[in-house]
Design a protein around this nucleic acid. Structure first.
Lengths: 340, 340
DNA sequence: TTGAAAGCGGTACCAG
DNA sequence: CTGGTACCGCTTTCAA
C-alpha cells in the first residue's frame, strides 16, 4: 500500500548512525556536526525521505490538522472562504477537516465532538444561526485549543476574530437606498442571535436615523435559519407586503436571503425595483446577469479565509501563550446596479 | 491541551486487567468472557474513552482520511459535490482532505504528492482540465490505493467512476434547441482532453446528426482551462460571432462557461435569445432570476458526491481485492426557461 | 557530538 | 479466556 516510504531507521542503518542522530540531523538541531547533518540530509533527500506524520503526531500530540466549522459548503460566501482557507493551509502543510452543520446547533456540537476526537490543532469557526450557548467552544478554548472565529463570531471567547464590516456594508447600502429616494426601507435578515445580524441591523438603523427616518420594527424581519428554508423568507416577505404601508425597498442580509427574496418577489408578480427595490449582501459571481442586475454588498470572502487561517496557524505555532488578540474587519464593496 | 482522554492503560489499571484484554474487550472480540467485556465497555463509556486515532493509524497504517482532488471549491457544481462527499464521509467517520488545483496539472501533481504523504486511505478524483498524463494516479493505484473518479474521469485506470449522463444532457439540450427552430447551433466547451468534454460533444453531435444537421467544426470552440479565465471564453465567443454565418444558438458546457458567455454576450449588446439563444450546463441555484431566465442542464451534484464516497469507502473497507468496477451514470435535468 | 532506550496509545502474536 | 510483550516511526531525555 502507498509508497513504501523509507524511515529514519533505514537512514540510520545505511549511514551507520543511531536513530536519534538521524532524527536530530533532520531537524537541523545545533548539537550535531555540520558533516553528519549534511550527510544525513543528502541521503534523506536522495531517497525521498518523508517523515511519517502519524508517528510524529502520536509523539508530539500535534496532528497538523485544522478543523473548520461552518454551516454549508455550497453557500457561495462560505465556499469562497473555504477556498481562501485551503490556499493558506495547504501552503503551510496543514490539513483541513471541514464540517458543515446546516444551521443546526445539535450538528454543530456533534461535529465539534468529532473534531476534537480527531485532535485537531486548532479551529476555524463560524457559528450556526441556532447557536446561543457556546460552552462547547469555551470549554475547548479554556483547555488551550486555539480557535479563530470568522464571520459569525462571539465576544464571549477571547481570541482572534475576522469579520466583515457589516455595519459599514449595511449602512452604505441603506444610505444608497435612501438617496435613491426610497422612504420605507425594510430588511430581511438572519437569526437575531448571531453577530452579523446585530451588526448589519446596526448599520441599517444608523443610516435611517442619520437621515431622520424613524426605525420601524415592523420593517425588520428575521430568518431563524438564515434563509436555509425558503418558508421563513416567504413568511417574512409576506408580513412585509401585508403591512398597511408596505416597504418600497428591501435590504437582504445574506446570499440565501437575497436570492430567495428575489425569487419570491418575482413569483408574486411584483417587479424589482418598480414595486420594491432590492439591495443585498451577496457573493454570487454574476449578479449583473440577474433581472434586474442586482445591487449587492460584496464581502471579501476569500481574503477572510486567508486571514483567519494565517492567524490560527500563528496561534498554533506560537511558542508563548498569546494574550493580545486581533479583530480584523474586512471592507465591503457596494456595487450599485439597477435593482435599486 | 484538548480533552485529556483516558487511555486503554488507564482502564486496564483501574480494572486490574492487562492492556490486551481491554483492547480486545473494546473491539468486541469473541475470545473474551461476557462479564469482562461488559465491565470494560461500561467503564469505558462511563469515562468517555475514545481511542486515540493517531495511535491506531500508526499501528494499522490506516488514517481514516479521504483525499479529494478537484479544480475549485467555489465552483457551484463542485461545492455541491463536496457537500455530498461531506455528508457521507462524516457519517462514516472519515475525514476529508480537500485540495484544489485551479485547473493546473502541476498543482494537481503537487497536491497528490502531499495527499499521499498524509497517507490517505483513498482518493476521490476529478481531473484538472490540463491533465492528460495520469501516471501519477496510475502509480498510486497500482500500489493498491483505492481511487474513485467522479465527473472528469479516465478509463486508463480500472476503478469505479461516477459521472453525469453528459451525452444525454447535451443531446437533450441540443435537441431542444433544434426543436425550437434554431439552425446554427454552436457550442463552447471545456478542454478537449477531459472526459466530460468528449461526452458532451458526442451528445451535441448526435442530436445534430439525428436531425440531419451537419456538424460544423467552426461551431465548436474549446476553453483549455474550462473557462477559468474569461479571456478564453471571450475569444471563443468572438470567433463564433465572426463566422460568415454566426450561430443563432449556443450550448455552453459548464457553469463557468455558461455564466461567462452570458455576461459577455450582454456586454456586446446582444440580446438572449433574440440574437443568440443560450442553454448551458449549470448548477447555479437561481437561474430563473437571470435575464432572461436561463435554460439549464442541471446535474445531480450532491448525489454524485454521495455515491462516489460510498463507493470509495466500500473499496477501502473491502476485505478481498475488488475486481469488478461500476460506472454510475447520473441523470441530468433539462429545465427549459426563456433563454432558448 | 553521538548512542541507547523509553515511551506516545494501540494492536496482535505467543504463551499459558 | 487472559497476560506479557514486541512493535508501528519518531522524539527526547539521559549517559557516555
Amino acid at each position: 500500500m502507498k509508497t513504501d516510504n523509507i524511515t529514519i531507521k533505514d537512514i540510520a542503518k545505511a549511514l551507520n548512525l543511531s536513530y536519534s542522530t538521524v532524527s536530530r540531523a533532520l531537524k537541523g538541531s545545533y548539537k550535531i556536526s555540520e558533516a553528519t547533518r549534511e550527510m544525513v540530509k543528502q541521503y534523506a533527500s536522495a531517497h525521498h525521505y518523508r517523515p511519517n506524520l502519524m508517528a510524529q503526531s502520536l509523539k508530539n500530540k500535534k496532528s497538523h490538522c485544522i478543523g473548520v466549522v461552518l454551516c454549508s459548503i455550497p453557500n457561495n460566501f462560505f465556499a469562497e472562504v473555504l477556498s481562501g482557507i485551503e490556499s493558506i493551509a495547504y501552503n503551510k502543510d496543514y490539513l483541513l477537516i471541514i464540517t458543515q452543520n446546516l444551521e443546526s446547533y445539535e450538528r454543530e456540537v456533534r461535529n465539534l465532538d468529532n473534531l476534537t476526537w480527531r485532535s485537531v490543532d486548532g479551529l476555524l469557526v463560524s457559528l450556526s444561526t441556532e447557536t446561543t450557548d457556546i460552552s462547547h467552544f469555551k470549554q475547548l478554548h479554556d483547555q488551550g485549543l486555539p480557535i479563530v472565529f470568522f464571520d459569525r463570531v462571539t465576544d464571549a471567547i477571547q481570541t482572534h476574530q475576522v469579520i466583515t464590516d457589516n455595519i459599514g456594508g449595511a449602512y452604505n447600502a441603506t444610505s444608497h437606498l435612501i438617496e435613491r429616494g426610497y422612504k420605507r426601507i425594510a430588511t430581511i435578515t438572519s437569526s437575531p442571535q448571531i453577530s452579523i445580524t446585530r451588526e448589519r441591523l446596526d448599520g441599517y438603523k444608523n443610516a435611517l436615523t442619520e437621515h431622520n427616518i424613524a426605525v420601524n420594527d415592523r420593517y425588520i424581519k428575521y430568518c431563524p435559519h438564515g434563509g436555509m428554508m425558503i418558508e421563513e423568507i416567504e413568511s417574512a416577505l409576506d408580513e412585509l407586503l401585508q403591512c398597511p404601508e408596505p416597504p418600497d425597498a428591501l435590504l437582504t442580509a445574506s446570499d440565501r436571503i437575497t436570492i430567495g427574496a428575489c425569487s419570491l418577489i418575482r413569483k408574486k408578480g411584483l417587479q424589482i425595483p418598480r414595486d420594491i427595490a432590492v439591495a443585498g449582501f451577496s457573493n454570487f459571481n454574476a449578479p449583473e446577469l440577474f433581472d434586474p442586475p442586482l445591487t449587492t454588498i460584496r464581502q471579501s470572502a476569500f481574503e477572510m479565509g486567508k486571514i483567519a487561517t494565517d492567524l490560527l496557524i500563528q496561534l498554533i505555532e506560537s511558542k508563548r501563550p498569546v494574550t493580545s488578540f486581533e479583530k480584523k474587519v474586512l471592507p465591503t464593496e457596494l456595487i450599485v446596479r439597477s435593482s435599486t
